[in-house]
């Protein structure tokens, strides 16, 4: 594409790509980690509880 001011335009779209995908990626990783830790803890607590009952 023969654009005038192409560098400014591409820089804008690059900034958008970096910032938006960056925030989304961090959020997804955070959720996955939290869910993993939560599941592990719940499993452990269930184990403890069933151990108490036994």
């Amino acid at each position: 594409m023969q654009w005038e001011y192409a560098a400014y335009i591409w820089s804008s779209y690059a900034a958008a790509a970096v910032i938006l995908t960056g925030v989304a990626a961090v959020s997804i990783l955070r959720l996955r980690r939290a869910l993993r830790v939560q599941a592990a803890l719940e499993a452990k607590l269930d184990q403890l509880r069933s151990g108490d009952e036994a």
Partner: peptide, 27 residues
């Protein structure tokens, strides 16, 4: 749409994190 997606992701993450903290306390 991006905002709704990321906000939901983050709220879910934080709810899970608070749950983790509560579970750790129980433990």
């Amino acid at each position: 749409a991006y905002f709704v997606s990321v906000l939901l992701l983050r709220i879910r993450a934080e709810v899970a994190e608070r749950r983790v903290r509560a579970l750790q306390m129980m433990q």
